[in-house]
Design a protein around this nucleic acid. Sequence first.
DNA 1: GAAGGGACTTGAACACGTTCAAATTCCAAC
DNA 2: GTTGGAATTTGAACGTGTTCAAGTCCCTTC
Lengths: 243, 243
Amino acid sequence: MTESETRPTPANPGSPRGEQTRQLIVDTAVRLFAERGYEQTTMRLVAGEAGVSLGNAYYYFGSKEHLVQAFYERIQAEIRAAALPAIADTRDFTGRLRRVLHVNVDVMASYHEFAGKLIRTAADPASPVSPFSPESAVAREASISLFQEVVSGSKVRLDSRLRAQLPELLWLASMGITLYWVHDNSPAQARTRLLIDRAAPVVGRLVEATRLTVLRPITNEVLELVDVLRQPRVSSTKGGSGR
Amino acid sequence: MTESETRPTPANPGSPRGEQTRQLIVDTAVRLFAERGYEQTTMRLVAGEAGVSLGNAYYYFGSKEHLVQAFYERIQAEIRAAALPAIADTRDFTGRLRRVLHVNVDVMASYHEFAGKLIRTAADPASPVSPFSPESAVAREASISLFQEVVSGSKVRLDSRLRAQLPELLWLASMGITLYWVHDNSPAQARTRLLIDRAAPVVGRLVEATRLTVLRPITNEVLELVDVLRQPRVSSTKGGSGR
DNA sequence: GAAGGGACTTGAACACGTTCAAATTCCAAC
DNA sequence: GTTGGAATTTGAACGTGTTCAAGTCCCTTC
């Protein structure tokens, strides 16, 4: 696992000198990924088009997957930039959720085929591209905070404990939708659109239902379950800042 | 995609003559996968240990993933064989569900690391190993029918329409649990065990709750949603037996 | 038993991701 | 302006999955 600690941190040096080269490689890779897909974009091609040597590309990016990671971060930023304005004019929870999810699909639309390959490495727990990996923490937090925005900007009424967990749950749900979207072979992924339009109200209704007294026991159980679900983040320090 | 139709069906010939060789390769591959994991098990090694040439292995299995597929099918059969006796002595829905899920984890336990790589190709919509692919139909149906058994053998009371969809939903949930399990780095995947023990009662309670009149609207919505979710199986025939 | 043809088998060759020792460039300190 | 070392850059080389043209084997047909 983490036994490559001996090497003096190749890939991803923070120094300023090579930053330009680094960006050049990223730009080229992102473009080629979009143009030709994952497999057709070889490291040799990226290096060639970027005007650097093969080994040099590996100096900045430890693997092809790290380039995918960079691609992923760009997409996430794009989604965020498009989503925030999209929900600015409504305080309806369901509406806000629906719009954010649609923006997700909108932005990813051009990369549907590419995403099929991307999801491969994303599903690997050992891959840095995994949405649950430490390397993805930045993008993940950003995405969760977007759903935090969805909740806090709305006038939804719900169980207070759920309110704290909801953003993360919504993010998880969006991961599920993305997984569905990847498998969606309907024209223009219309089925996913339908799913979003249908699922958002259901989620809204379920969330509001957590205030019902009848459902209190179940609500409690579900909330506890979510706590169990949450994997402790990997860290070498023992104890950490406990819950 | 399916443009390799020109070749005279290499890989997977149904003829009897090479069946022995085929089995030999599968056996060797499964053993090596279990012993050394996915990456360490090279096609050359499989071929060598099986006593055939590299090209010969590719004659029977179009790719390394097809070997994984074979591995997957064995696991599924093993799970089924272990699960059925395990639920024979109780008619409690939650209990039955819990046991089946535990058997799942039991059987897969030895392959936890390997599963991390397996899930990679499993997540790829284009891969035959994907649980949603036509190639996996047999294993999938078998698995769903196991959950059908869980439901029909229990004395659970629930909305009648849900009863029809529940087995598939449970299968889907088990996929989710497997995904969680793959990411579970707690010792002996204890966290997944905990998840199962906690989630089973919640599911049981939720399922029984579908009979509550208060929840009728939400139940309806959720059931319709599931209908939308269901991807139409890929098929060249137009129309099909639509609802 | 010879001929034919399909099933099966082979190993070399290819392209790719990745590694690495060696070279080059750059900049600060003297 | 020379020097030392770190940052950067290079291209050859390795091991892998996969392909393929060329065989070899085995059974049917005459």
